[in-house]
């Protein structure tokens, strides 16, 4: 938000206005309830979208805010998915505690990785995360006794949510469950990025050298956000396990890491909502296009990606924000935002 008129507001007032809930955000979240009424046959897809959105949100924390590029984020998603699956297979199918344990396990793995991650940037980081992703995939593949290997994990049975709501075939419980978990973790992320810590993350993304010159604890910040991001990715993975009662090697593969990156870039990185918007577009497009031609559905996604990156370098949300921040729009809406008004 940049406005010359804004300079007249006090700094506290300005920051509060920046962090305030906007009407469009509330409308957006309410609209996510529409599938229950409008497309009740697509609730399974809708819960996939919510889970993928959560995964993309976790990537946004490190990529969009802290500037850590990762091509292996599926490692944490898959680790969470397998943790939840293995727990359930061995007799603990309670979903909420399963979610927490999986998130904790993935967070722990993320914390260990963060000691390496925080030391590198750019290309080296891409290679390290990529290698780490492959490593975990092959590990899951070879530990057949634990993970079921290439056949996938058999015998996962998730208990009813809160002991009351069974996971049904139509995905009613799944969507409620995924949507609520997404919303709660979104609130956590929103709080995080509006905190002093969130500001420092953006500082690291913008200029890591300068951060050293203001005495910032950049490395500790990076380790912390990487751990949090890994935990959230793990929770997303656990959600997938619990809502589908299966885990396959697909949760760890490179395609999943690449897809989530594409989703975030499409939607707009560094904007919290980018991952959610991207997930909706990506998964709905895949559903529709693969109906038309199951083999080549990546083609239209490829076209979309190229067009977005060429014309909207900050993603779809970035493009929208540019319109909203334009002079003309500002003048048009000046009366609706009192803190920007000239005295």
């Amino acid at each position: 938000m940049t406005s010359t008129d804004g300079a007249l507001a006090g700094p506290q007032q300005y920051l509060r206005a920046q962090q305030r809930w906007r009407a469009i955000e509330i409308v957006f979240w309410l609209s996510l309830l529409l599938p229950f009424v409008v497309t009740p046959n697509y609730l399974v897809l809708a819960s996939q979208v919510a889970i993928t959105a959560l995964f993309a949100l976790s990537l946004d924390l490190i990529l969009g805010y802290a500037g850590i590029v990762s091509l292996g984020h599926a490692a944490f998603f898959g680790f969470g998915a397998y943790t939840a699956g293995i727990l359930s297979k061995h007799g603990w199918g309670e979903p909420l505690t399963g979610l927490l344990i999986s998130g904790f396990a993935a967070g722990l793995l993320g914390y260990l990785m963060s000691f390496i991650i925080a030391r590198f940037r750019h290309l080296a980081l891409i290679m390290i995360t990529l290698g780490f992703g492959f490593l975990l995939l092959e590990l899951a593949n070879s530990l057949g006794w634990l993970t079921g290997g290439a056949d996938g994990l058999q015998g996962v049975k998730t208990w009813p949510l809160l002991g009351m709501f069974k996971f049904d075939l139509w995905g009613v419980t799944s969507y409620w469950y995924s949507l609520i978990v997404l919303f709660i973790l979104f609130l956590v992320c929103r709080r995080l990025i509006n905190s002093p810590f969130g500001l420092s993350l953006r500082g690291i993304r913008e200029n890591a050298v300068r951060m050293r010159a203001v005495g910032a604890e950049s490395r500790a910040h990076l380790q912390k956000i990487y751990t949090i991001s890994a935990a959230i990715a793990g929770i997303a993975g656990a959600l997938l396990t619990q809502t589908t009662d299966t885990v396959s090697l697909g949760v760890l593969n490179f395609e999943r890491s690449a897809d989530v990156l594409v989703i975030l870039i499409l939607g707009g990185a560094g904007r919290l909502y980018g991952g959610i918007i991207g997930a909706i577009i990506f998964l709905v497009a895949r559903d529709q296009f693969s109906g038309i031609n199951p083999q080549y559905w990546y083609f239209p996604i490829g076209v979309l990606l190229v067009v977005v990156v060429l014309f909207l370098p900050n993603g779809i949300l970035g493009g929208l924000a540019q319109i909203v921040e334009s002079e003309r729009w500002q003048r048009w809406t000046a009366n609706l935002t009192p803190w920007r008004k000239k005295p």
Partner: peptide, 17 residues
Amino acid sequence: LAVCERQEVSRTWWKPI
């Protein structure tokens, strides 16, 4: 940001700026 780093409050992520 620089002031918060000096005061070491930049570790806090649960309170808004």
